[in-house]
Design a protein around this nucleic acid. Structure first.
Lengths: 259, 259
DNA sequence: GTTGGAGCGCACGGTACCGTACAGAAACAA
DNA sequence: TTGTTTCTGTACGGTACCGTGCGCTCCAAC
């Protein structure tokens, strides 16, 4: 967040460059890190590091996509918003992706609400119009970014399956893994209430599920916090709904080859 | 299917053109119809009309995308395949879309199994490599096609929500609407068994749900067939999980404007 | 220290599903 | 006709959820 922002700026001030400039090697976002350097050069003049506070609304369902951001820490929950105001989580995104993939699919409006979660941190932000121009110049960049969208859709698909066939305990295990993957710490800052929204169930059901997970030693719960103690046990509980989407991400993003 | 194929070929034989050539106006697929004529010209030499029989496997999860097809009749169910062989439906596609949208998202492998359903009919098929070349020549075509992918993802998202918050009766109503939209007739050829796969529930639960729908007069059931008698009643049952994705399709596809 | 709120534990009856199973009815083949 | 398969109706006990509500505990604010 702000402190970090200042720290990063200071770190580079001695180079004589714009102190606000973002460099590819110090970017905390995996897509920024792994994109072709020439593509990064297209984006760099327009990238700015901004603070992201847990609870921030990064996008409003139905409104125009004006800025896109590449998280460097924390997570972003994608929520489908119903007419009655209820919100159901359809996916989770962190520093491995970017908030704005619908733009790369030709959509100029947010299909979901996006909420910052997990921890306060930073993101690299760019105006949607700038990104579109860069993609027009470099089709390879567009292809690279839309491959992430493909990976996210796979995650959505697995979430759908998990919701349909698994108990709340298993679904909770899966969601904790999605969180854990995207944060640096084994200690997750999350309440039962928030998990219940993500899973689309009662808060009390989450409490019960977490007790079961505590029972077999895979997690420890404190007030507003959860500590991951046995990841393997969690993975085992998710059966096949965790891992495939993550492998798909690596397959699609790791190689810089275009289709 | 084959009969229709021959009929279409005969219809054009007197023009002196290649009897197998596909014309934009007589294509039954909405995307083919609505794409820019110049883009259609890029595809035309490589398009072929092929029969599609209900039950055909159009794609195998995990295998390479070699051909892409634009259905002219019937529907295609997208299924996530689990390690134990169980299959869960994540979406439905018909003549309004195309089987192969993952390719336009930079993915060279099928993320799902795709099964032809509903009725026998035809599709316009093209080799994936040919389509990629056409998209490389015309970015506008790529943008147009990937916008359909965006609409499909919205449908997936609503399916996820529907599975999470609605009773089997409501989810059945929604699925019947998705079918009905993509077929010409009020009479749907579908068994309880098949619906149960699509909804991820017991076959007996579907039977029960259909009886409820018959009870309020919205459908009539026969052996292997269902007749839609009151669409509005079905729509009402789906609450907000039907309609939004369909509106999104029109918003993204109707105008030929690029972003 | 007191107060207030947020987070959590727990309990109640209710119900919408589940897995399984079996038999009748319709379509089809020989 | 007879058999065979497919589709449908129905039943059973079991359970994993649900909506609701209430009270405890921790923590922060004052």
């Amino acid at each position: 967040m702000s402190d970090q922002h200042i720290a990063v700026a200071a770190e580079h001030s001695f180079t004589g460059q714009d102190p606000h400039a973002v460099e590819q090697n110090d970017a905390g976002n995996w897509l920024i890190q792994r994109m072709h350097p020439a593509d990064f050069d297209l984006l760099r003049p327009h990238l700015r590091r901004v603070p992201v506070i847990s609870g921030d609304q990064l996008a409003e369902a139905g409104s125009a996509i004006e800025t896109v951001c590449f998280p460097e820490s924390g997570v972003a929950g994608f929520l489908d918003v119903l007419d009655d105001g209820r919100k159901i989580a359809v996916g989770l995104l962190g520093r491995e992706g970017f908030v704005g993939w619908p733009l790369l699919m030709g959509n100029d409006r947010w299909p979901h609400e996006v909420m910052a979660r997990g921890r306060d941190g930073t993101a690299l932000q760019i105006d949607a119009s700038r990104l579109k121009k860069a993609v027009a110049v470099s089709p390879g960049l567009g292809n690279f970014l839309v491959r992430y969208a493909s990976a996210f859709v796979t995650q959505m698909s697995r979430t759908l399956v998990s919701n349909l066939i698994h108990s709340i305990e298993r679904r909770t295990a899966r969601w904790l893994l999605l969180y854990h993957d995207r944060l640096d710490s084994d200690e997750l800052t999350i309440t039962h209430e928030e998990l219940s929204i993500m899973l689309g169930v009662r808060r009390a059901s989450v409490t019960e599920a977490l007790h079961q997970l505590e029972g077999n030693g895979s997690i420890r719960g404190h007030r507003g916090k959860l500590v991951i103690r046995d990841r393997a046990a969690l993975v085992a509980l998710t059966c096949e709904t965790y891992g495939q989407a993550e492998a798909e991400y690596l397959r699609l993003i790791e190689p810089s080859a275009a289709i």
